[in-house]
């Protein structure tokens, strides 16, 4: 490669280099053209693990149908107390812009005096993207979900308590709960109410059939509570109503195997016809044989 000495050439090279770099980053990203959706959510699951989820997506400001998830962005999940920050994990977002983390039941958190836990999901600033941070503050709540038939009335009870610093149980007040029955694709709400003195009870009046064994899956959920976040508890019970499963249809017009009589009729007709054909063919061959015999016998008499 010849060394380019000419000043003009040098400038041209620089311009070209910049232009090509710009060209490479042709779809130049300007943060202002987009609305940022950075959502941090938390759910305490049935097995008492805690699931954290961050969804980081940019939506085009003008064309709202265009969405770009942020891929391989590093999200730091942090447990914060005053100035102390403990990094729980660092997770990269998927192609859908989602980063998830599941914390086990026995996870130790830093709690403040009132027992609140603060979790932060942080995305650190890069050259092109602003920093993002969202915080969830919650108290750990313990649910006791019971289904029982009391005096032949199907009763569903939910008891909830929190623990104070000394480990004593405090009954929960004024907290909304919703109850669902789970299906294959979704859950159906059957009741909702408010926990009073740490307890809520109602009668199950629906007549759903449940699964093939008559089992129904019940969910008790606290949704978007400012103190407790999202909590869910699940229980199965065989309160499914009797229902008849339609019998499997065999040997019909629509099944793989036809009704028996069709096979019989078809076989009968075909045998009839083909037997006739075989008879004719055999007779022809017999005719040929008899001709040969006749020839040996002597000349043909008559016409």
């Amino acid at each position: 490669m010849k060394i380019i000495n000419n000043k003009l050439s040098r400038i041209i090279v620089i311009i070209f280099a910049i232009a090509s770099v710009i060209n490479t980053y042709a779809q130049e990203f300007v943060q202002d053209n987009y609305r940022t959706f950075y959502n941090f959510s938390m759910l305490k699951q049935d097995d008492n693990t805690r699931s954290l989820k961050v969804r980081y997506v940019l939506q085009h400001a003008e064309d709202k149908t265009v969405e770009h998830p942020v891929y391989k962005a590093q999200i730091k999940f942090i447990n914060k107390l005053d100035d102390q920050e403990v990094i729980l994990a660092e997770v990269l977002t998927s192609k859908n812009g989602i980063a998830t983390l599941t914390l086990p039941e026995n996870q130790k958190y830093l709690k403040d005096k009132e027992g609140n836990i603060t979790l932060i999901a942080r995305f650190e600033e890069t050259e092109k993207l602003e920093a993002q941070e969202e915080e969830i503050m919650f108290k750990d709540i313990f649910l006791d979900f019971n289904l029982a038939e009391i005096d032949s009335v199907k009763t569903i009870t939910l008891n909830a308590y929190t623990l104070n610093n000394k480990g004593e149980q405090l009954l929960v007040e004024e907290t909304d709960v919703a109850f669902y029955i789970g299906g294959m694709l979704s859950k159906m709400k059957i009741n909702d109410g408010t926990l009073e003195s740490g307890s809520y009870e109602f009668e199950y009046e629906h007549n759903l059939p449940g699964d093939e064994n008559g089992l129904l899956t019940f969910y008790a959920q606290i949704e978007d509570h400012e103190e407790f976040g999202n909590v869910t508890k699940m229980k199965t019970m065989n309160w499914g109503v009797e229902h008849s499963v339609p019998k499997k249809v065999k040997n019909s017009l629509w099944s793989k195997n036809a009704p028996g009589w069709m096979y019989a009729v078809l076989a009968f007709l075909l045998i009839l016809v083909w037997a006739n054909y075989v008879y004719v063919v055999i007779s022809l061959f017999k005719l040929k044989k008899s001709i040969k015999k006749d020839l040996y016998k002597g000349p043909i008499q008559g016409n």
């Binding site: 007709l269 016809v273 054909y277 022809l284 020839l295």
Partner: peptide
């Protein structure tokens, strides 16, 4: 097929044709 038009052969052919003709009528209808 070695046909020599003897009376027996003629009769056989006629018989075969007749039996096939019944079959053919039935087949055509069905």
């Amino acid at each position: 097929f070695g046909y020599q038009d003897t009376p027996e052969q003629r009769k056989t052919i006629h018989k075969l044709v007749r039996s096939m003709s019944i079959m053919i009528i039935m087949l055509a209808l069905m």
